[in-house]
Design a protein around this nucleic acid. Sequence first.
DNA 1: CCCTGTGATTACAATTTCGTAATTCTGTTC
DNA 2: GAACAGAATTACGAAATTGTAATCACAGGG
Lengths: 228, 228
Amino acid sequence: MSHILLVEDDSDIMRINRTFLENEGYTVHCADSVQTASFMLEECVPDLVLLDVMLPDGDGMDFCKILRQKTQAPVIFLTARDENDSVIMGFRSGGDDYITKPYDLNVLKARIEAQLRRNVKQSPQHPKIELPELTVDLFAGAATLDGNEYSLPQRELQILYMLASQIGSRISYHDIYKTIYGCDVEDSKNTIRVNISRLKKHLNMDDMSTYEIAATSEGEYVLRRVIF
Amino acid sequence: MSHILLVEDDSDIMRINRTFLENEGYTVHCADSVQTASFMLEECVPDLVLLDVMLPDGDGMDFCKILRQKTQAPVIFLTARDENDSVIMGFRSGGDDYITKPYDLNVLKARIEAQLRRNVKQSPQHPKIELPELTVDLFAGAATLDGNEYSLPQRELQILYMLASQIGSRISYHDIYKTIYGCDVEDSKNTIRVNISRLKKHLNMDDMSTYEIAATSEGEYVLRRVIF
DNA sequence: CCCTGTGATTACAATTTCGTAATTCTGTTC
DNA sequence: GAACAGAATTACGAAATTGTAATCACAGGG
């Protein structure tokens, strides 16, 4: 279940919140000052932070900025102030929500759930190139062609990625080599040639494939969609 | 230099354009019908297409849609019509510009250059995670930590990518294994552990690094920014 | 102080990766 | 057809990758 870091200097409020949240199934870590909270951050890893704005040894908003460098966990400010300026400052310092005291515990619960929901739905969507019948997934190190998936070694994947990201335009040996290796060498052609050959074999590219890698007479390669 | 595919059925206009463009240093491929143009596409790989809307054997806009599946080269329509509907149709079918006859050759040149410029500036920007003092580049297969660049093997890169994309939140062995291998196995812990150990070594992670990979007592890992 | 369990690291070996070089293929010119 | 050039593929071996298993480190409990 989710871990919540509760930063609050009023011991009554802390106790009430803690009990309530623990009953809801959360693991609660408590701190009553900026210093303690900073220390706790080293120990626990919160999924969400409930942060009082007024703390004995500092401002919750300043703490929020520091916290933001460590985690992207949502921060909900708890405060007595409800002036617009304060709210704006809260959001500006990286807060995700702002609840003014006194508040209903079920409202608190609902807002916590909303924040946690938002955070999980930000599911990892890896960068991918998706063309009809061809995809290139850098994270997975794999590509699909005509419905089949093939995992590819780095060099081949890099080349395919470059070609696919500029489908239909010519890319020189030179450019490919430079992009992949960072520099250029006299005899870069052969290396690229060999790797493209390997790529084609790995992908089972043949006359029936939807795509072909064609070479121009000027030392360039093109990925092209074959239309029958 | 750039290759231009010129599709135009009026032989006078074609000749004039061709001569002019070749003098400007372009390589020009000519076609006088949709069929010829389709055929030429198999031979040449244009960087830009000049397309007459009215062709003897079909509509330039239909051809444009076909062409779009093969290449993202910019398409400039050349036409006598200048009704709004036609212009809109042209853009809708995938065109990038629309020039009405008669036109000044230098205007044509300027528009061609503008399109080609737009296309090169779309330079390849690889997907990257960039945090302060830490970057992860899936394309290059490398990461930087505290100013030093390290190239990483796939497994370690995948793990670092997952951790970095959710800095400060806990990720279970389970999740990591499932994301990387697609399935989950009974004894997934060890594999992940070993790879994280290797990752730390590759990155020269120590007490002085800006980031640390911490394990929780619940079988999870967290990437955290260390604040001194 | 010795177990013991768990996490971290190291060792090892099968496999993969990948640049270089050799060979084959293909089209062009004479 | 021979000769050639350049492209494509194959061959090869050094190096890297990576899952598994063994070992080490270390805290908690008897």
